[in-house]
Nucleic acid binder design. Structure first.
Lengths: 196, 196
DNA sequence: TCACCATACGGAGCATTGCTCCGCTTTGCA
DNA sequence: TGCAAAGCGGAGCAATGCTCCGTATGGTGA
C-alpha cells in the first residue's frame, strides 16, 4: 500500500526549487478550481489554472484524490484538533453533537466531497482512508466519552457512525430541498436514545 | 419536462413488432448486465448483450437512467404495493420500520443504485424523480400513520427521510465493513424518540 | 403478391476525461 | 560554465456517453 504518496513526504528541503514552487502553485490552483467547479473538476482544468502541464500534476499527485487530500489537509487537521479541544461548557454528548455538525459542515461546503468519499471510483480509496485515519480516532473518543457519561449508546461503532454521517451529506447541492441537518439530528437522537 | 420518455408510453399496439421485441430484449439484457456489472455498466456492454446497436439502445432509452427505471419498474411497484398492504400484525410504527428495511434491501442489492439515485450526473434526475414519485406518497402515509399512533415524531418530512435512508445505503459494497442496517435502525430510533 | 416509405436500426464517430509516456528543459553541483 | 539528474509539457491512448446518418425492414394499400 502506498503510504506517503503525497509530496510532503521526504524532506521539504532537498527537493529542487521548481518542485516546491509547482507543488504550491498546484495546491492553490486546485483549491480555486474546487471552489468554483467542485471536487470533480477535470484535472486538465486544474493544470490550466496552475499554468502547468498534465504530467506535472500527475507527478505531484498520482490521483485526483491525492490532490483533494492535499488541498483539505489543513482543514482535516483542524477538524481533528477541534475534537480534542475540550469544550468550555457542555456535556460530552453536546461536544459530540457539535463536532458531528462541524464535520457535516465541512463535507457540505465542499461540493462533491461527500460523494467522492464513498465513491467506488478507482483512486478514491486513498481519500476515504485519509479521512478514516485522521478522524476516526477522534470520533471514537467523542463517542466513548459520551457513552461513558451515560448519555448515549455504547454499542455503535465509530466507523459506522462516521460513514453514516458522511452518507447523509450526499446529495446536498443536488437536492436543495433536502434538509441534511435535520437528518443528522435524527441520527444523533437515535444515538442518544437508550438501546431498547 | 419530458414526461413519458419511456417506451411504455403510447399505445403498446401501434408500434412495429421489431420495436416491441427490441425493447423487451434490451430490458432483459440490461437486467442481466446490471446484476453482474452494476448499474454503471457501459451502455455498449448492454447493447452487446442484447445483440443490438448503440443507436437502438438510445432510441428506446434516451439516458441510462431511463433504462434503470425500466428494469426496476416492477420492483418499484411491488415496493409501493407492499406499503399499502396492511400488516397482519404490528403497530403502524412496526409497519414503517419493516418497509424502510425493505426499501434499503432493494437499494443495497442493486449495486450502484443508491449512488446513482443521488448522483448529480446529468440524466440521472429522472431516476430520482421516479423514485420520489412512486415511493414518497407511500412513505408519507406510513410516517403519518405511525405519528398518528403516537409512536413517532410528526415533524419529519417524508422527503428528507427517504433521501436519508437512501443515502445511508451508499457505499455498501465498496466498504464491506459498513453496517447499514445498524445505521438505519439508529435513524429509525431517532424518529421514534419523542422530540425533545 | 408486391412495391413503397415511414419507421427503426447499426455502428462509426465526436467529445470528454483520466492517466501515461517520452523527448525536451531546467536546476544545482562541481 | 558544463553536465547529468531531476523535472516538465502536452500529445496521445483508452474508456465511455451520446449523436448522426446511410441502410434495412415491417406493414400497408393496391
Amino acid at each position: 500500500m502506498p503510504r506517503d504518496t503525497t509530496p510532503q513526504a521526504g524532506a521539504g528541503q532537498s527537493r529542487r526549487s521548481d518542485v516546491r514552487r509547482n507543488e504550491r502553485t498546484l495546491l492553490e490552483a486546485a483549491a480555486a478550481v474546487f471552489v468554483r467547479a467542485g471536487i470533480n473538476a477535470p484535472v486538465r482544468e486544474i493544470a490550466a489554472e496552475a499554468g502547468l502541464g498534465m504530467g506535472t500534476v500527475y507527478r505531484h499527485f498520482p490521483t485526483r484524490a491525492d490532490l483533494v487530500v492535499g488541498v483539505f489537509r489543513h482543514q482535516l487537521d483542524e477538524l481533528a484538533a477541534a475534537a480534542r479541544t475540550p469544550q468550555a461548557a457542555g456535556t460530552p454528548y453536546e461536544s459530540l453533537r457539535l463536532w458531528v455538525h462541524r464535520f457535516a459542515d465541512f463535507l457540505v461546503t465542499k461540493h462533491g466531497l461527500a460523494e467522492a468519499l464513498h465513491s467506488d471510483q478507482a483512486g478514491f480509496e486513498s481519500l476515504h482512508e485519509e479521512f478514516v485515519e485522521r478522524l476516526l480516532p477522534v470520533l471514537d473518543q467523542l463517542l466513548s466519552a459520551s457513552a461513558a457519561a451515560g448519555r448515549s449508546r455504547a454499542d455503535v461503532r465509530a466507523y459506522d457512525f462516521m460513514l453514516a454521517v458522511g452518507n447523509l451529506c450526499v446529495g446536498v447541492g443536488t437536492f436543495p430541498d433536502y434538509r441534511v441537518r435535520r437528518m443528522i439530528d435524527l441520527l444523533l437522537d437515535g444515538l442518544a436514545a437508550p438501546a431498547v
